[in-house]
Simulated scan of single mutants.
Amino acid sequence: MAYIAEVRAAAGHRPLIFTSASGALVNNQGAVLLQERADTGNWGFPGGYMEYGETFVQTVKREFKEDAGIEIEPVRLLQLQDSDQYTYPNGDQVQPVNAFYLVRALNHQHFATKPTETVRTRYFALDGQPPRFFNHQHANMWEVLQATLSSK
């Protein structure tokens, strides 16, 4: 997050384009893991912004461990998203370019999450939907995941 903080210190709240990566971890019952975000209180897929020098794969692995406490590896790129724009509660404006992956857990070990980013994690059945998504991008990821898993 140091890179984002440095850029924001220079740019203020003005609109910026940032790259990010997120993942969908589906359990044996077909439910997907989501995080309740500390910054907005909404639900979303674990993931976040790329640090300078990282790849999308490195980013999703790091962010998933920080947000959900689980070491993962990407199985398949589901979608590259670039059409959303969002204003955070603090006024920061962003157009994220997000790589959305289907992921699998590497082991059963669970790590502590960052309390500044995650309130809790929970599995949601794909035939339902969490009470409120973080933004349109996460709602779109939900639809992409539903379509991908229903076509198998």
Rank of each mutant, 00 (worst) to 15 (best):
D82T: 14
N90M: 06
Q109V: 11
Y86V: 15
M1A: 07
Q109C: 06
V32E: 00
T55V: 12
G48I: 00
Y52Q: 11
A38Q: 00
R132C: 07
T121K: 03
V26M: 08
I72M: 02
Q85T: 14
Q29K: 11
Q85N: 07
P115N: 12
Y52A: 14
L33W: 02
I70Y: 02
L25K: 03
D92K: 11
Y49M: 01
Q137K: 13
L80D: 13
H110S: 15
F100A: 08
G44A: 02
Y49C: 04
E54H: 07
Y123S: 07
Y101R: 08
Q81G: 06
Q95R: 15
H110L: 14
E54V: 05
T148A: 13
L34M: 13
V26Y: 07
Q35D: 09
Q129I: 04
D39T: 04
D39Q: 09
V103P: 00
R14P: 02
E36S: 06
S150K: 10
Q95T: 15
G69W: 09
R62T: 14
M1Q: 12
P46S: 04
H136A: 15
L149A: 11
V26I: 15
N27C: 06
A125G: 04
D127L: 08
L106D: 09
G30N: 05
A147I: 03
E63V: 01
A38N: 02
F133I: 00
F100I: 04
